[in-house]
Amino acid sequence: MPCRGGGRPGPDGKDGDRARLAGRSGPRRTGAVRGPRGGAAGHRARLQTATVSRAPARLVQARVGSRLGMADRTSRTARRVFKRTVPGPLHDERSWAFHLGPGGRDLVLGIEWLREAFLLREPGYPSGITVPTIVDIPTGHVVTNGFERITLDLGSRWAAHQRDGAPDLCPERWRDEIEDVADKVYRDVNDGVYRCGFAGGRQAYDEAYRRLWERLDWLEERLAGRRYLVGDTVTEADVRLFPTLVRFDAVYHGHFTCNRQKLTELPALWACARDLFQTPGFGETIDFAQIKAHYYVVHHDINPTGTVPRGPDTRGWLSPHGREELGGNPFGDGTPPGPPPPSERVPPLGSTTVDV
């Protein structure tokens, strides 16, 4: 459940948490790195995220969650405790690489590959090396890579370190509905595009395709008359939907053969996606060039040539969406985050290449 935690199946149908350190140590481990001391520049924990890959649950969701709640540079407590870094868009059998950083390393942890932090925590760690991951800076050990727990813990266990005015993404009065909608989004949309892209045969593909488009049709109808998926503010449900929408035309439509329609051909979903993109804390986490570089270069079995497409044109993301007429306030009683620090700024829309 999105507001309470718990595992869900991955694209292979297995319990995703069993393949993650969070499943071995329990989600409370995320709260174990809240101390105010330690690490470079006084930071205690390092959140490894990326601008690419399987975003809903794993990447942009964690980055958006932290941008909405913890990234304001005026939050001195958060700055003492929490520091983020972003690997490059590529990985191989050795895991995510810090190949875009000076010297090809994470400058705080001193590692070239994210797997090094996993192996410090559990020598011989046999499962997937995934992001987002929280690493304890003093020890260099992975604390958790349980993506569903991380975003929730940023808003609960780490609440004491949030900036003033951080919004509540899972308010109690809407909690049951948020959990229900977010579960549907995760199962049929976030995972659904992957089930299409990596289907092992016609039957598996047809089933994944059917479920994906039935859910997208349901979302299109739901969003036709309301600005947000639940209530009148941005919630965890919107945060989970956004990363799949923002990647849909650039990657999932063609690369994963989810090609009944483009996002830009679905009026309510396209307007909703633009509304979120233009909301502080969302669009500033998106680097379309790195997104495309990751999917089209790393997935050799789907794209053997590694050719990265030049399109689509992304300038439409800044076009008027008209969703304000539906009412609501994205941050409720809270306030928007400030601009990201220079180290986390992404290229402007229209940038089409990335040095990989």
Rank of each mutant, 00 (worst) to 15 (best):
Y228F: 15
T51D: 05
D136R: 02
G103K: 13
S351K: 13
K14Q: 13
L68I: 11
V193D: 04
L21R: 13
R18T: 13
R173Q: 15
W174I: 00
E122Y: 11
V108I: 12
F242L: 11
T279Y: 05
A237H: 08
H43T: 15
R157C: 00
G35V: 02
D355E: 15
N145M: 04
P336V: 04
R187N: 06
V298G: 06
V246T: 15
T264I: 01
E265R: 02
A50E: 09
V142D: 09
T144H: 08
T244I: 03
V142K: 01
V346W: 04
P347T: 12
P11V: 00
V298D: 11
H141Y: 09
Q162W: 06
R24K: 15
F282P: 03
L263Y: 07
V60K: 05
D12A: 06
T279H: 08
P89F: 01
C258E: 09
D136T: 10
V86A: 04
R274Y: 04
Q48V: 15
V346S: 03
I291F: 09
S53N: 10
Q203H: 11
P336Q: 05
C258P: 04
L100F: 08
V297A: 05
G165P: 02
S156G: 00
E93A: 14
R202W: 03
G155W: 11
H255T: 13
A160C: 03
H99I: 01
D191F: 07
C272G: 07
D72G: 13
G306H: 07
G197C: 10
I129D: 05
G88T: 07
R44Q: 08
H299M: 02
R202H: 12
S66W: 14
K14M: 08
I129T: 11
A208V: 12
I129L: 07
H91M: 10
E236C: 03
T244H: 08
I134L: 13
G6S: 08
E172W: 06
D355M: 04
R80I: 03
P36K: 09
L90N: 11
T139H: 06
N303L: 00
T257F: 10
T77H: 07
G281N: 12
I291E: 14
D301P: 00
R115Y: 04
V86C: 11
V131F: 07
A268R: 06
A289Y: 14
G124I: 12
P126F: 06
E344T: 00
R157F: 03
G332R: 12
P267S: 13
D206C: 00
V108M: 09
P336G: 05
P337M: 05
H255K: 15
L241H: 12
T139E: 08
R37C: 01
L212W: 02
V297H: 11
S343L: 06
H141M: 01
L269Q: 00
P167T: 02
H99R: 09
H253Y: 13
H321M: 00
T305A: 03
G201R: 02
L47N: 08
R163I: 00
